[in-house]
Deep mutational scan, measured.
Amino acid sequence: MKGKVVSYLAAKKYGFIQGDDGESYFLHFSELLDKKDEGKLVKGSMVHFDPTPTPKGLAAKAISLPLE
């Protein structure tokens, strides 16, 4: 699924993505496929991810940034 980063707290390594389906997904650095892309996780960045339901809500897994 595609989505847009709505927040990312680099110090805490987490944030949120708004998916194309309108839902909010929890984003964690550990799910970023290329850790070098962390600096690109800023508000408004477009990402691809696997939407995954968890006991705490919806989460983004296997997060990647589109090729530039």
Rank of each mutant, 00 (worst) to 15 (best):
D21T: 04
L65Y: 05
G15K: 01
Y25Q: 00
F16S: 04
A60T: 02
F49L: 01
I63F: 00
S45C: 15
S64C: 10
L67P: 13
F16L: 06
F26C: 04
G39C: 14
K43F: 11
Y25F: 03
L9K: 12
T52Q: 14
S45R: 15
I17R: 00
D21V: 02
M46V: 15
A11W: 11
F29K: 06
F16Q: 05
A11Q: 11
V5T: 02
G19W: 02
P51W: 08
G39N: 13
F26A: 03
L33R: 09
G15S: 01
L33H: 05
V6T: 12
Q18G: 05
G57H: 03
L58S: 05
Q18K: 12
K4D: 03
G22L: 05
G19H: 01
Y25E: 00
L9H: 14
T54G: 10
L9I: 14
H28A: 12
P51K: 06
G3D: 00
G39I: 14
I63V: 13
K4I: 14
Y14S: 06
F49K: 00
L67Q: 13
K56G: 07
A60L: 00
A62I: 05
D21Y: 03
P55S: 11
V5I: 11
P53A: 13
L65M: 11
V42C: 12
I17H: 00
S30K: 11
K35Q: 10
V5Q: 00
I17V: 07
E23H: 14
H48V: 14
Y8G: 02
L41P: 01
L33W: 04
L67D: 13
L33K: 11
L41K: 00
S7F: 15
E38P: 03
G44I: 02
T52G: 07
E38M: 06
I63D: 02
L27V: 05
G39H: 14
P66I: 15
G39S: 14
S7V: 15
L32G: 01
T54I: 04
E68D: 13
L67K: 14
G44T: 03
Y25H: 01
K56D: 07
P53Y: 13
K12C: 12
G57Y: 04
G15F: 03
F26H: 04
K35A: 10
A59C: 11
E38R: 05
T54C: 07
G39T: 12
F26T: 03
L41I: 07
Y25D: 01
K61H: 10
G22P: 00
T54S: 08
D37C: 09
H28E: 06
I63C: 04
K61C: 10
V47M: 03
L67R: 13
V47P: 01
D37E: 08
L32R: 00
G3K: 01
V6E: 08
A62N: 15
G15I: 03
K35Y: 09
G57P: 03
F49N: 00
K61S: 09
V6A: 09
D37L: 09
T52I: 13
K35S: 09
P53F: 13
F26K: 03
V5N: 02
M1D: 03
M46C: 13
L65K: 04
F16R: 05
K56S: 09
S64L: 10
P66K: 12
G44M: 04
